[in-house]
Design a protein around this nucleic acid. Structure first.
Lengths: 248, 248
DNA sequence: CGTTAACTTGACGGCCCTCAAGAGAGGTGG
DNA sequence: CCACCTCTCTTGAGGGCCGTCAAGTTAACG
């Protein structure tokens, strides 16, 4: 039957997910530095729960109880807030090695939606256990702080982008940042698939989808990038960086 | 001599600064909840260093080494990033009870400038000692996480403001937020002095100073607020909130 | 092959920026 | 005490960037 194939595929992926932190290729990104063998073993004990989130599914929703933070093993997510009038604002895009859910620690309730833009594998880390463990493992404790601090600093860059840059500068900055993030994860820095729609990208950048589309076309005419729907090729990274001028 | 008076005034303030966390009226704001007497005593031990920062002086600068976080006992600060071309972007305004410097934990270097907009009293908390102490004091540990998490969530609101709101909505949202913060600290919610210039406020909101000035005038004509230079009076808070419509 | 979602492109208008001039407040020195 | 300077704020006129509205194309999927 044709029905069986996706299920088999899923089981295969689930099998691959039976890994532990000590063997995880992402641990340099996820909890960056300084763990010894003993410490990794302790981490393994609490990150038992790994699971798949299919394209379009929520990892968590605004208002749901905060119980865990999530490390992305593979795939792509957006986080967004929804308003009374139905308007959506995308607050971030998240990929392999990123940690999501940190903004909920304060209120113990999630303050945004997290949706998979492609079928993704996540590693669920119960926060109470992580807190306990970090009490006796200074290096984990420091890493937690660093990850949160890094997120605060990154958000400040986004605020700069939204507050000071023109549309072309925003898109150039986004493409350069995305390229660097792919590159840091071992993928091509010059060619990649966008996982989000023009509308989601526009929402993130504070622009309308038509504006995003127009500027993609303009960049292509100028030979800065190649665009084929969601496939982006950076042809002149320095040219893009020049667009940023004094900013960023 | 006329010269002696400011010095005397300063000594008086310094004398007032000889307080400890256990007696500090701000501790509910600063490190919010759940400390017992023992724990407060331990906190006292590490927050020895309190000092004055005069109007216009830097508390820390971009690139300087990160050694401590700072709790504001009184006064008003802005944080900002400076660009090659001389343009400044204001990332935040900070008042009594706020904690500054958390974004530097990741890089161990400050990534923004912190400047006093009026003569202010700050409480310097060495971060290495705070980290040590939080290892043996779970409630402090939790509070640190909550403060950082709160900052992340707040930054997301600012991103929404910069990305989705029109100029009038931004200013209305800012005034309402500022009013609530003053109110939470025991000051009037309806009448307060702005500590920042129109230019600094515009930089924070992603607007030009002329636009800020024009909208203040417009709000005044409409009876929403009273404006006398930096003295702001909220006359119709509900009217301001109505301006936000579906947003925030 | 029909339907739907996503994207592209054009025309027009409004919001906000730019440029400019002037007023008011605060500080300094005579 | 007042003239003078500087910083800040206000207000006006004009223009440009980007949002709005609309129509058409492409791609994906049943």
């Amino acid at each position: 039957m044709a029905m069986t194939e996706p299920i088999l595929k899923e089981q295969n992926i689930l099998k691959q997910l039976k890994v532990v932190c000590s063997l995880c290729s992402l641990r340099e990104l996820c909890l960056p530095i300084g763990f010894g063998p003993d410490e990794l073993q302790q981490l393994d004990a609490l990150t038992g729960s790994k699971r798949l989130v299919k394209r379009g599914e929520h990892l968590y929703r605004t208002g749901s109880e905060f119980t865990a933070i999530y490390a992305i093993r593979g795939g792509f997510f957006k986080t967004s807030v929804l308003h009374d009038d139905g308007r959506e604002h995308v607050t971030g895009f998240h990929m392999m090695g990123d940690i999501m859910g940190l903004d909920a620690i304060s209120t113990e309730t999630h303050v945004c939606d997290a949706v998979a833009l492609e079928t993704s594998e996540i590693c669920e880390i119960p926060f109470d256990k992580l807190s306990e463990l970090s009490m006796v493992m200074p290096v984990l404790h420091q890493n937690l702080h660093k990850i949160m601090s890094r997120e605060i600093a990154f958000d400040h860059e986004i605020m700069l982008m939204l507050g000071k840059m023109r549309a072309e500068e925003r898109l150039a900055a986004f493409l350069i940042n995305l390229s660097q993030r792919f590159s840091a994860r071992g993928y091509s820095a010059a060619s990649f698939q966008l996982r989000m729609t023009r509308e989601e990208l526009g929402s993130y950048l504070g622009l309308k989808l038509e504006t995003v589309s127009r500027i993609f076309s303009k960049f292509q005419e100028e030979g800065l990038i190649g665009v084929q729907k969601k496939l982006i090729e950076l042809k002149d990274t320095n040219g893009l960086k020049r667009l940023l001028g004094g900013l960023a």
